[in-house]
Structures are given as structure tokens and as C-alpha cells.
Simulated assay, not measured.
Amino acid sequence: MERVYIPQDAKSIISTSSKGDQSKWLVGDKWIKENTRGYENMAEYVASIILKSSTLPKTAYISYTPCLIEKYDGIVKEGCYSLDFRGSLQEVTLERLFESNFETTDDILNNTRYSTADKFNAILEKIHLFTGLDVSYEIAQMLAFDAFILNEDRHTNNILFLYNPRTAVWQLAPIFDHGLSLLSDIGDYPLDKPISILKRKLKAKPFNSSFTKQLSLYKGEPFIHQHLLLKQLDESPYNLGRAKDVILSQLKDSRLQQLIIH
């Protein structure tokens, strides 16, 4: 596994997830993230494998590479890295987008009178109003992918937009941050418990706690090539552990067949 060195003067950035904080660093053009709850690095890597085995263009997602993180004090931890995709563009999370327009996503997402589709449509209408973007298909596809990898961390700060201040043009950022997927949190999902049992505990975000109901928002064509995915899993140079077992289980799930190209 590749070893990445964190110099003493590297700025540590605390990334907040729905389960707590995670240390990460920007060193050169690499974002480096440390495992804190289990095998987040392998979850990120396997998610990358799935996306590489899909019909999505390479510009639509971020790839992650597992690594050993060597800190300046000699401590070595497992983690992963990805390339910085922002360039000169400003990043604006979905939550921040609403706040900058003096609104909040809570007014929509916590409205008990709204169905899952109502919440989705209301949020996407606001996105269009604020940015001019129609990204309903892309975000529905991202939620379908989340259902496939059991991503429990797609909160409103994990949907990102990029803004070009020179041209005043918005774009949806590539799909990123899948560390809390594939049952990677071994505290909440112990390694000695059956995958089928653990999957029942999972809760989705942000439009519904049910992955199945969020999956129903996607009306597009299948986009995951099963043959390519199995080939990449088998040829991986890393020990994928339970992350691979979860994917094999997901490929057999009848509710997910609409996503799979056989």
C-alpha cells in the first residue's frame, strides 16, 4: 500500500460527518483522509471501483486510493487520498447554498406533509432558482448509487456545488465522500455480525431514511456493469475485506436490479 507523508506544517482540517469528526489534510494536490471508525478507506476505494465500472463519465466522480498515512511524529495510520478537484472554483454545499439565499433545507426536509418525492422536487426547484442548474437526474442517480453502496452520510453538506466567480457559472461537483458506506463503521456494524442483519439498521439521507424510497426517485437506465465490477473486485491489489462481501450481497438484491447492467 502506498505511503503518504504528512509534513509537520501541513494544515489539519477536521471534516464533520453525521457520525463525528474525521482528520484530513490537503498536501499538494491530494486530499488525505484517515480512518477513524473502521475501513473507510476501503469503502471509498470500492465505491470508486463501482463508479469506474459504470456508465458515468470520469468527470462525474472522484476516485480514492488506499494508503498508509505517516505523520511527522512517526505514527502510521490507514487512510486514503483523492485529488483536489476544486481548482480555482469556490465550493458551496447544498446547505450553504440555501443559507446564502436566507433559507434552510430543514423547512423542506422536516416537513412531515411532504412525501419523499415532494421533498426532492422542492429542493431541486430551489437549486434551479439559486443556480440555474437542472440537476434532478444527476442527484437522483447519486441517491441510487448511495442505495447500492449503503451510504449513510449523504447529508446536505455532502452534496456540493462549484461556483466560478469570474464567469458566475455554477456546476454540480463530482460525486465524492463515500467513507461511511459498505458497513465501514465497525463500531456500529461489528465484523462478526451477518451482513443481512446489519443492513436492516442502516438509515439513508437526506430525503428519507429508507434507501428504497430514495432509490425510487431514480427513473433512468441501469448504469453499473456487473461484469466489469466483478472483474475489478477480483483483480484488486488490496484486501477488500467485508467491503467486497457487501457489494456481492448488493448485486443479489432484487430491489437494486434496476441499476445493474447484466
Rank of each mutant, 00 (worst) to 15 (best):
I260V: 14
R3P: 00
I108V: 15
M42P: 04
K52L: 09
I32D: 07
H155K: 11
E138M: 07
L129V: 07
K52F: 00
P174W: 11
S100R: 12
D106G: 06
I14G: 02
K219M: 06
K24Y: 08
E95R: 14
Q141G: 08
D153P: 01
G28F: 02
K33W: 01
L26F: 08
S88E: 12
A204H: 11
D234G: 09
E78G: 12
N158H: 12
F130W: 12
Y64K: 10
G20C: 08
E78W: 00
F85Y: 15
F161N: 05
Q232P: 00
W170L: 03
V169N: 06
F207M: 07
G20S: 12
L233A: 01
E34S: 08
N157C: 12
T112W: 03
K199T: 14
G241S: 10
L97W: 02
H178C: 08
K213W: 02
N121G: 05
I175V: 12
S209G: 02
T55Q: 09
S100A: 07
P206V: 05
L109Y: 06
E91G: 07
P57S: 15
I175F: 14
N164W: 08
G179V: 07
L251S: 07
A117P: 01
E138V: 04
S216Y: 02
M142Q: 14
Y189N: 15
S249T: 15
G241H: 09
S254I: 11
P174K: 11
C67H: 04
R3M: 14
K213G: 05
